[in-house]
Amino acid sequence: MADLRVTLSGITLDNPVIPASGTFGYGKEFSEIYDINILGSISFKGTTKDPRLGNPLPRIAECTAGLINSVGLQNPGVNKVCEEELPELRKIFHKPLIANISGFSPEEYEYCARAMDKEEQVGIIEVNVSCPNVHNGGMAYGVLPESAAEITRVVKAATKKPVYIKLSPNVTDIVSIACACEEAGADGLSLINTMLGMRIDIRTRKPVIANRMGGFSGPAIFPVAVRMVNQVYHAVNIPVIGMGGVSKAEDVIEMMMAGASAVQVGAANLVNPYACKEIIEKLPALMDRLGIEKLTDIVGIV
């Protein structure tokens, strides 16, 4: 009998499959088509201190084997998330959650971390450092080791829960940023976030996305994600959650061989709302075929 269980910072998941933040809302739409309790966990929609409408429309551009989104962290703000969304999510999902938080200043990250620290169902706080630092020229926190480490320290000081930093691939050297986060006390890392991309409508001669550019995700970026997960896995001693274009059970195995202790599924949920369910159902037979008894045996074997 294939053993799908994995552990992240002392939290055991029934399987490594986790819908990625921003592609699963708060689970409601998916719970209408399958029992989402089969999932390993859920990384729910990115939360900021204040409510955000997000970016102007159009926010979506299709690409070969993927899409660009520029949703812009639309969310009702952390207070409303805790008061309204999480109680609803609790009714349909009964396992530890991953709370994805973002901010435009260290104080905003701290505020969100403190709020999520009080939420019993939150098992891990996942920190998105891809937001622009509005007080420092707008460069994303995640592009420099120093600023990524600063946010790590701020969030660690605000919570007792495990803190995972979600790394941006839009950097020269992701390993140096991963190491800086580990040194600053991160309990784990999530990677990769979306890659910056752009499409142009050749008829109107204008960008497809109102905000000009956005985050590129989908199967097209999977090889980049596997490479970065593998590089980071070999450089750090904390668990890595792998993501970026994962769409099928084979991708989960490959991502875990690269070094992921668990795997998030993002864009695939949007084109096939049953994607996570199908992956979980196909994993045992695939493991049998590949001679894998326990998923934990293959983590980072490459």
């Binding site: 921003g22 592609t23 699963f24 809302g25 409601k28 739409e29 998916f30 929609k45 409408l53 997000g54 429309l57 159009p58 926010r59 979506i60 551009a61 899409l67 989104n69 949703v71 639309q74 949920n269 949007l270 084109v271 709302p273």
Partner: peptide, 27 residues
């Protein structure tokens, strides 16, 4: 009408501001 990704309310790609708050055109 709006450019959509999922079409069922998950991605927030087609949000529209209304008098009663932010709504998803698709859902």
């Amino acid at each position: 009408e709006a450019r959509m990704a999922c079409g069922f309310g998950a991605c927030m790609g087609c949000t529209m501001e209304t008098v009663t708050g932010y709504k998803r055109v698709c859902k």
